[in-house]
Simulated scan of single mutants.
Amino acid sequence: MSGTAVAEVLAELAGLEDPKARAVNERHGDDHGVNLGKLRAVAKRLKTQQDLARELWATGDSAARLVALLICRPKAFDRAELDTMLREARTPKVHDWLVNYVVKKSPHAEDLRVTWTADSDPVVASAGWALTTERVAKDPQGLDLDALLDVIEAQMKDAPDRLQWAMNHCLAQIGISHADYRPRALAIGERLEVLKDYPTPPNCTSPYAPTWITEMVHRQEAG
Rank of each mutant, 00 (worst) to 15 (best):
C170K: 09
V67L: 13
L112I: 11
D119W: 12
E110C: 11
Q164Y: 02
K93V: 12
P19T: 08
A7H: 14
P201C: 08
P207C: 08
Q49Y: 07
S206I: 04
C204Q: 09
R191P: 00
L16T: 06
L112T: 13
V6W: 07
G29E: 11
H169T: 04
T84P: 05
L186P: 03
P140F: 04
V99K: 08
A11Q: 12
N25G: 02
E88W: 15
A41G: 06
K47S: 15
E190L: 04
E134R: 15
E221V: 02
A80V: 07
D83S: 11
T84F: 08
K138N: 07
W165K: 05
D18Y: 00
I188L: 05
V151Q: 11
L86Q: 13
M216F: 03
Q141K: 10
P107A: 11
P210K: 06
L39D: 08
A109L: 13
E110S: 13
Q155P: 07
A43Y: 03
R40L: 09
A11I: 05
A7W: 01
V34Q: 09
A53R: 05
R90V: 13
D96P: 00
R73T: 11
A76Q: 09
T84V: 14
A209Y: 05
W212K: 06
N25Q: 07
L131V: 04
A209L: 02
E221G: 07
V24N: 00
P199H: 12
N25W: 01
H28V: 03
I213H: 05
D119F: 09
A80C: 03
